[in-house]
Nucleic acid binder design. Structure first.
Lengths: 225, 225
DNA sequence: AAATTTTTTATGGAATCCATACCTTATGAT
DNA sequence: ATCATAAGGTATGGATTCCATAAAAAATTT
């Protein structure tokens, strides 16, 4: 049951939410710590460097907003704010003072997970380790493998090359010709075969791909969210 | 059978845990002492210098936390805390006051062993003695030998050179060329043979190496955990 | 010169790569 | 809606490259 390498701090005064989120993220292989309020959080932040903070805005004592402000003065740890419904002002304020994303309550844990992966994909740490999320698959280009559903699947060098290029510009359509140039192949069918294989490795439902999609008449495109 | 050179103090008021851990660590060649509470522990610490302390947090009399605090004022002996399940606060508190790692109860002895090796690999003593764990193998570069499964195996000068270089940057891929430069060899197969030999010495299952791995098309890489 | 270590060579096996053939699906003209 | 056709998907297999290792030869140490 190997964890990924990211540590997240969840701060909320509501026990249920805290525990729910913690559990959900842990199920998805994150290392999770929690804090009950801004002061508690600050203490922990001063000691350990987290990869992401998830802060409730509305907390007794000090608000998530003030905490965000403090944090952003010190370093650039990404912050996701949890805002009560309708509090549009807070959201805007949050982004102004440097929060990286926000999520209105009530929220789906799944949605939070998505945002987290999104942000992680942009961090230096992930980039240095050559790690990036595509949906549920944590791609590690350096180690030539993919972690998905607690399994590790190997990718081969050719597959790596293609993934690498496509990951540089997610959303860009790659013609078969483009892909062919990357791996020195000209036959169209051959390229299709490689795409098929990649799909089997990164998609949870390869027959109906969500991330590595076909663009009929043009080629293929990779989405990372 | 011959011990390694590390001395560990296990402090827990629960007899069963104390004895279990002691036995397990002894099986793995550590020298182990035990203490029944914080006062008992303090007495022993004042007399002997241990390489690692394993402290239960929840103990009658004085808690593992206070003991950690005291210890850290005196010197930097590494401390691993054992915390009851769910006591997230204690864990963070522990790290705050200088503990080096923590482990939630109930824990696998194997997991504890892993953390211990991890910490030892970082200590000055280990580095000075040129001792480092790779999985179950305790490599002693100075003495040109490896302790594994209660056996001592010699390593040869060439093997040492390679290990030494690879240990400097675990996780880095060494091309055959890189390795060839270390030991002045150009034939690729020759290098493979050396890797094979090393695997037979440090891996418990050389056919399926866990630490000294092949990166097809690129070379070899050494992982130490 | 005996023993040990190092290097080379030879061989078999595994992983990867590429192409082809055949199958399925999407699309637009009728 | 139906059908013809273009486009895409994939199972399979041969070729090739790459790697592991036994065994022998050479070099070095004892």
């Amino acid at each position: 049951m190997s964890k990924n390498s990211f540590h997240i701090l969840v701060v909320d005064d509501d026990d249920r939410i805290r525990e729910l989120v913690k559990q959900y993220l842990e199920e998805n292989n994150f290392l999770v710590s929690t804090a009950i309020d801004a002061f508690d959080a600050k203490k922990k932040i001063d000691i350990i460097k987290f990869d992401i903070l998830v802060l409730d805005i509305m907390m007794p004592g000090k608000s998530g907003l003030s905490l965000t402000e403090e944090i952003k003065k010190i370093n650039s740890t990404p912050v996701i704010l949890l805002t009560a419904k309708g509090e549009a002002t807070d959201r805007i304020k949050g982004l102004e003072i440097g929060a990286d994303d926000y999520l209105g309550k009530p929220f789906e844990p799944k949605e939070l997970l998505l945002r987290i992966k999104n942000i992680l994909n942009k961090t230096k740490k992930a980039i240095l380790a050559n790690e990036i999320y595509i949906g549920n698959a944590l791609i590690n280009l350096k180690k030539l493998h993919i972690k998905i559903n607690n399994k590790i699947i190997k990718i081969n060098p050719q597959e790596k090359k293609v993934l690498e290029k496509m990951l540089e510009v997610p959303g860009k359509i790659f013609s078969r010709d483009d892909i062919g140039k990357i791996i020195n192949i000209s036959k169209e069918r051959t390229i299709d075969v490689m795409i098929t294989r990649l799909r089997q490795k990164i998609e949870s439902n390869p027959k109906n791909p969500k991330y590595l999609q076909t663009v009929r008449g043009s080629g293929y495109v990779l989405w990372i969210e």
